[in-house]
Each structure stands twice: as structure tokens, then as C-alpha cells.
């Protein structure tokens, strides 16, 4: 296990490359969800408001 984590002395390079990839991919993946939630909430609020007119 220790050996695996050390990556033959390249631990810093290998793990940082994978970590950055994970962060960028997760951020890219989460962004549309955040935008959707915001947009849908705004639309629902507007429709409700229109109904109460």
C-alpha cells in the first residue's frame, strides 16, 4: 500500500495530476446542475406570482 501511494517516487506528480483532473471534471459536472436549480426556482417563483395576480 505504501509502495502504491509513493508511485515509484513520482507521487507528487501522479497524484496531483489525478487530483486536478478530478476537481476540474467534478466542477464541470456540477455546474449545469447548479444553474438548473437556480433557473427552475426562478421560473417557479414567477409562475406562482403570475397565478396570484
Amino acid at each position: 500500500m505504501q509502495e502504491f501511494l509513493q508511485m515509484g517516487g513520482y507521487a507528487g506528480y501522479v497524484w496531483s495530476a489525478y487530483a486536478i483532473t478530478a476537481v476540474v471534471l467534478i466542477a464541470t459536472a456540477l455546474w449545469p446542475g447548479i444553474r438548473r436549480r437556480r433557473l427552475h426556482a426562478a421560473l417557479r417563483k414567477r409562475w406562482q406570482w403570475e397565478r396570484s395576480e
Binding site: F4, M7, G8, G9, Y10, Y13, V14, A17, Y18, T21
Partner: peptide, 21 residues
């Protein structure tokens, strides 16, 4: 890619970055 491929004889374990690059 990280755990079950053999180590590259030239580049050592740094070659594993190609799996994301």
C-alpha cells in the same frame, strides 16, 4: 491505470499521467 498496470521501464510510474492527459 493507477494500480493494475505494470510500471513503465523508462518513465517509471510518471507515465500513469497519460491516462488523464
Amino acid at each position: 491505470g493507477l494500480a493494475f498496470t505494470p510500471t513503465d521501464y523508462q518513465q517509471g510510474d510518471s507515465f500513469r499521467i497519460i491516462y488523464v492527459h
